[in-house]
Write a protein that binds this DNA or RNA. Structure first.
Lengths: 219, 219
DNA sequence: GTACATTTCAAACAGGTGTTTAAAAGTATG
DNA sequence: CATACTTTTAAACACCTGTTTGAAATGTAC
């Protein structure tokens, strides 16, 4: 009995770090099972397929993170007046950083995985997250819309995807970026530093005024 | 003689559309040569390897785009007073849209390829672009720094990478996003629309004030 | 302690990958 | 025309991928 969960755990642990480092496509089951020191076939035995393993790896974080975010969103939605955008974005910080208690380097790993999830794979992870946590995400969108009454819904849609791009891309390549920052600016940056840098950036971006289109008609 | 360039052209054309659609890793040489109606071996014969084919596909656009951007950057740098950030970002618009004269759907394809280039592959395309066009990119960074004297260099570095993330991610998934926008908001969005939406967003983001750091003492 | 169920294991499977080979076809040049 | 060079072709190469198989080992319950 305990050997079963041990094997599953070993696979998940090995998989998550390899996935975070090299992406889903570029990590083979053989690499995972070698690192986990389990038999190749055990991935399919315990998880069914590689696709389901990927989902299981992300699920381990999402099932902790998302209920906490959902709770925070409810709290903000309960207040009468619209919330400040920076405030809304800041509610992500603590739940994200608390993932470090779930796993060593949990925050970093999860965000890297999320990045990989949106860039590597075409559809199935996007669908998976939306299917399981769409309700929570909708609350977030609503909050942002309330805080930006000057923006049409479609503009909020685009800007949130622009923002998702920043996050996901930054996290997928956070190792490389941190290295450059270290070399060029002698600046030690951890994942918390990146998150905190993102908040004012995204806050200003999402709330930016929409410029009228007619003054920039180019030839 | 002309059959040689014809074959190379056919390969490049087929490769670019498949790469843009499915990414580099998920497009095989057999798919490319089938679509191009050439022999499988001709890719290696004419380009050496898949890696070099990828670079050749991007190079076809970069060698047109980058000199034009370089020129625009020089023009802005020549002016005495610092330039407005929105102005700086706007110089991308025309050179990018002119790629449509190079190829049908050129702008869209190029930006998708760029997105794939930064998300799919780990290193070699990043290196390739920096190696060939680093001087031009440096001019852009300088312009941004001049327009944002309140920002430390390292902050500009991070924010430009956040911005790169928005662009690259949006472009890599632009088809999916445009579909959603169409369905949810009955909004037809072409690539030019996306570019124009990005400018005020990125302008506000990059120039955003830096919030005081002292509240971020880590545990 | 036997019977049953779960888990592990080595091996093979079927299919895909980028690349190389050596002969064939085509094309210029003397 | 014959020579030399370039390009195309079909086939094979060596390797890697996720998945399946059936037997062996282990664990669990009566």
């Amino acid at each position: 009995m305990s050997s079963k969960v041990q094997t599953q755990q070993r696979i998940l642990d090995a998989a998550q770090s390899l996935f975070a480092e090299s992406g889903f496509n570029d990590t083979s089951l053989r690499q995972i099972t070698t690192k986990a020191e389990v038999n190749l076939a055990s991935v399919n035995y315990h998880f069914g397929s590689k696709k389901e393993l990927i989902q299981a790896v992300l699920q381990r974080y999402l099932q902790v993170l998302m209920p906490r975010l959902d709770q925070e969103f409810d709290r903000l939605l309960a207040s009468q007046k619209p919330n400040d955008l920076t405030q809304i974005l800041s509610v992500f910080v603590k739940p994200l950083l608390d993932l470090n208690q779930l796993q060593r380097r949990g925050t970093r790993t999860f965000l890297q995985l999320l990045g990989r999830g949106y860039t590597d794979v075409q559809g199935h992870l996007r669908w998976f997250i939306n299917h399981h946590y769409g309700r929570t995400l909708d609350k977030f969108v609503l909050l942002v819309q309330q805080s930006c009454p000057h923006l049409p819904q479609s503009e909020v849609f685009w800007r949130l995807h622009f923002s998702l791009g920043s996050i996901v891309f930054t996290m997928a390549s956070s190792d490389a970026l941190a290295e450059i920052a270290q070399a060029d600016f002698n600046e030690a940056v951890d994942i918390e530093g990146v998150i905190r840098r993102l908040i004012p950036y995204l806050g200003a971006a999402i709330a930016a005024p929409v410029y009228s289109q007619d003054l920039k008609t180019v030839a």
